[in-house]
Simulated assay, not measured.
Amino acid sequence: MKPIVVDAFGGDHAPKEIILGAFLAAKEFNLDIVLVGKRHEIEKSIEIISKDFSSNLAQRITIKDAPTVITMFDKPSVAVRKRNSSMHVGMELVKHDEASAFISAGNSGAVMAIAMMVLGKLKGVSRPAIGALLPTINGSVLLLDAGANVDCKPIHLLEFSIMGSVFIKHMLGIQKPKIGLISNGSEPGKGNSLVIKSYDLIKSSALNFYGNIEGNEIFSDKVDVAVCDGFVGNIILKTSESVPSIIGEFLKAQISKSLVYKIGYLLSKPAFRMLKKKTDYAEFGGAPLLGVNGACIVSHGRSKAYAIKNAILKAAKFASLDINTKIEEAIEKCSALKYIQRGVENAI
């Protein structure tokens, strides 16, 4: 496999934690990594970090110089003009087949915009989307779109459903992923105009469509892919990310009030550790940018080494399974169902 490109200057803890994550991935998964960013600063960090690893491992880490950093405050329209940024230079490596995948914990809007410009869209895809894996009772659910497209049409939600189904089938091994459409009611006919039209469209496809799901059903294992526009998806994502920390703070405050509570906490500590691990975004590594012509993973801005390591693993698996080719094939197959004959011309 060609190397995985990592934006060494994306995220709150760049470059040290990003580089450490690259070393961990190279060691654990036997992968080659290209770190993109300011060469001098990367070299200084590598000099310190590599002391804890074998000299042979350091040979699996190479550097691609990129003097400009895209900040979290840069608008996408500004970011795309920074041609010598770590994001832009890194994606160019993927575009020219010098690397298998690209990862960044930086500005997600900038990643999306630069990916659209440099990598382009997959054949048949009109709107790439961010897919966020969220924990459920017994597994996980792919939330799609998690923030790339705040305004959508029914045809876009059908595309998200197809891409999500392919991703889950091959990445998680679920042969017939169930697709759920997020709405304010489970009955057909509930929801706004977008949801109502999308319901009929997705139902008429060959996908394993479960139907509408409400917000309280997203984490219940009823579906494998939860589909919505990026406005709704991003609110769900940000809200769900805040819940574990709020519960943790609440428990800390209550436990400190009673000796009995403290003893109970000590006895239950393994269970709390398991809960924390299951709900920790670092376990998922990052969110795939589905629909762009290249493997691209967007990691959380707060990602540290462990999260970056897992993102690299996800990117490597995405590339090795050739998910993008499978998405194109699924889109093409669905296109053969004759959208226009099913009255979809107004949805495009």
Rank of each mutant, 00 (worst) to 15 (best):
P128V: 06
E345P: 12
L122F: 06
V80N: 07
F272C: 05
D280V: 10
K121A: 04
L158S: 01
S205G: 08
K262A: 15
Q341N: 15
G124M: 06
G90M: 08
I33L: 00
V94I: 13
I255M: 02
A253I: 01
K333P: 04
S198H: 07
R302M: 11
H40I: 12
L31I: 07
R81L: 12
L194D: 10
S242N: 12
I18C: 03
K276I: 02
H96L: 15
F284Q: 05
K75Q: 13
N84S: 09
Q59C: 09
Y199I: 02
M171H: 06
C228M: 10
G185P: 00
G37H: 07
V89H: 05
I196R: 12
N138T: 10
A206Q: 13
M171I: 14
D229S: 03
D7H: 00
G11P: 09
R39E: 15
N56M: 11
G90L: 05
A307N: 10
G164N: 06
G120D: 10
G191P: 00
K2N: 13
G124K: 02
G264R: 01
G106S: 01
S183P: 00
A271F: 09
K326C: 09
K314C: 01
A8W: 01
K238I: 08
I137T: 04
E329S: 12
L93V: 03
M72L: 13
V6W: 01
L35A: 12
K95I: 08
S54N: 13
D151E: 12
F73G: 07
K338Q: 15
M72K: 09
E332F: 14
Y339S: 03
Y210H: 14
I247N: 00
E328R: 00
K269D: 14
S258V: 08
D12G: 08
I179Q: 06
V125R: 01
G164R: 03
S258M: 10
K27R: 15
Y339D: 07
K276P: 01
A14F: 02
M87C: 05
T279C: 12
R39T: 04
I137K: 11
G301V: 11
V260R: 14
L337I: 11
L194H: 01
L337A: 09
S54E: 09
S50L: 01
I48D: 14
S320G: 09
H40K: 15
L289W: 03
F272A: 09
L172M: 15
P177L: 03
A226Y: 03
G120V: 08
M171D: 01
I19H: 07
S165P: 02
G230Q: 02
N107E: 09
S220W: 06
R342T: 13
A287I: 08
I255Q: 02
E159V: 11
A287H: 08
N310T: 09
E332W: 04
F73W: 06
I155F: 12
D65P: 00
L93I: 07
K178E: 10
H40R: 13
L134Q: 04
G120S: 04
I61R: 10
T325N: 14
N216P: 00
D221G: 07
S242I: 08
I246G: 00
E92D: 15
L321R: 09
L24N: 11
T136D: 04
G285K: 06
